[in-house]
Write a protein that binds this DNA or RNA. Structure first.
Length: 421
RNA sequence: GGAGAGAUGGCUGAGUGGUUGAAAGCACCGGUCUUGAAAACCGGCAAAGGGGCAACUCUUUCCUGGGUUCGAAUCCCAGUCUCUCCGCCA
């Protein structure tokens, strides 16, 4: 959520910054609505004052007048409420303002590569895709998922299932033991309000799976990422300065409709309706967001370093960032079968954008209540990491060498092959 | 699912129709004392929003939404959530 005062005082700057993002919201009406809203508040408060004075005076002669004032107040405050809702509807659909050091651009070609790391090992055979490898091993079964569930799901079986589980455990261990994150096992449902807090609603409802409840009261959604539920932990809260930074990690399934991705990545498990992800969330003093973003991104790349997977780090341009982000690094891992880098992590600072929506604050050193900074990043997407290992660690016969660091998590096996299983 | 109890400021917790925005305690901030700290003592301390260059001022808010009343934390109705007991259950 944006600060209306900032918009009011810096409308041209605001407009310009927002125009860099893929944003369709019409913002021209904001100033008018804001002005109208404040005018109505002013009128309403003047009447409320009159009424209050009468009540205090306990002057029976004035009681009738007070009743008349009440009906006037009702009328004005109804109109004010409508105005305010309309204003909030517009503002809540406007994405965050990009940080000033984010490159401008409308599409991904303007993203900037920051770093390329890890050795891409050339193979003396044609690398297979993860789904060829997995199906040949009998450990990835897309047809079975189609039978039981539908498109964009997969059964992971046997040693690959074990590796998937090992990856989650390995990543969480690194983040809890080395990087100072606290492990959380959260609910996988989020309330409508929580979804609003992190910015999935109202604009991206079509991407979300809503739960059908027995009773018709509050709406619930399957989390599209643990970011939603972890970040909302601090919703409506005033945190003590001493308790910051708050660093949380969770491994959870994530559920996404992938609306608008029809035809994209239909083969394999790159893009599924359900996938595991280890998510990092930091709640920090709002002055420390960018430092924390660097730190968090390093925590994510650390996993790839330990797994010896080649990757690159890019900074997203203004038009390619997610709704709530002010700055985002994507980490892309090398996939030999496609001869390209594919996203495996995305780390974002949201500044105070989410905390305004959530009303999450802390007392700063001057003892003032100020909005927290929130960050989230994948550390990493487990399914895609599995893919990356399969493809990068494959040998000619279709077996997969298990990365050293994972072996302790897999009964010290060193290889997955159809023969051994 | 059945029966009760409850929801008040960062936290704990008084308060059943008229200076109650709300006692008290804790926490926090400032000060005195101390070589320093602690303790003790003194003072300050809710939030959001509006107006004003500012000092300041006004409005709203005691779970949420309605209602009664000139006036509601306090009375009435509906809802949400929490706790206790019983039942059921991984």
């Amino acid at each position: 959520m944006h600060d209306i005062k900032f918009i009011r005082d810096n409308f041209d700057i605001f407009k310009k910054k927002i125009s860099n993002r893929n944003n369709s919201a019409s913002i021209e009406n904001i100033l008018n609505l804001d002005k109208k809203n404040r005018q109505l508040i002013f009128e309403k408060e003047a009447l409320e004052k009159q009424k209050k004075d009468i009540s205090k005076s306990k002057d029976k002669k004035m009681f009738e007048i007070s009743k008349e004032i009440s009906s006037k107040i009702k009328k004005i405050s109804d109109e004010q409420l409508i105005t305010k809702i309309e204003l909030e509807k517009i503002i809540s659909a406007i994405p965050n303002i990009p940080h000033s050091d984010v490159p401008e651009g409308t599409s991904e070609d303007k993203n900037k590569i920051i770093e390329i790391k890890g050795e891409i090992k050339s193979k003396n055979f044609k690398p297979k895709s993860h789904y060829e490898l997995g199906e040949k091993l009998g450990m990835l079964d897309f047809d079975l998922a189609t039978k039981t569930t539908g498109a964009r799901f997969v059964f992971v079986k046997d040693k690959l299932a074990m590796m998937e589980r090992a990856l989650s455990n390995f990543m969480i261990d690194v983040h809890t033991l080395e990087n100072g994150y606290k492990e959380i096992s959260p609910p996988l449902f989020a309330s409508e309000n929580s979804m609003y807090g992190t910015g999935q609603l109202p604009k991206f409802e079509n991407d979300q799976f809503e739960i059908k409840l027995d009773k018709g009261d509050e709406r619930k959604f399957l989390i599209p990422t643990a970011e939603v539920i972890l970040t909302n932990i601090v919703k409506n809260q005033i945190i003590k300065l001493n308790d910051l930074p708050l660093r949380l990690v969770a491994s959870t399934p994530c559920f996404r409709k992938e609306a608008g991705s029809y035809g994209k990545d239909t083969r394999g498990m790159i893009r599924q309706h359900q996938f595991y992800k280890v998510e990092l969330v930091s709640i920090v003093e709002n002055t420390k967001c960018l430092d924390e973003l660097e730190r968090m991104t390093n925590c994510a790349t650390m996993i790839l370093d330990k797994l010896n997977l080649p990757y690159r780090k890019i900074v997203l341009c203004t038009g390619d960032m997610g709704f709530s982000a002010e700055k985002t690094y994507d980490i892309e891992v090398w996939l030999p079968s496609e001869s390209k880098y594919r996203e495996i992590s995305s780390c974002s600072s949201c500044g105070t954008f989410q905390s305004r929506r959530m009303n999450s604050r802390y007392k700063n050193s001057k003892n003032e209540n100020v909005f927290t900074g929130t960050l989230n990043g994948s550390g990493l997407a487990v399914g895609r990491t599995l893919i990356a290992i399969m493809e990068n660690y494959q040998i000619e016969d279709g077996s997969i060498i298990i990365p050293e660091v994972l072996r302790p998590y897999m009964n010290n096996m060193d290889k997955i092959s159809s023969i051994s299983s």
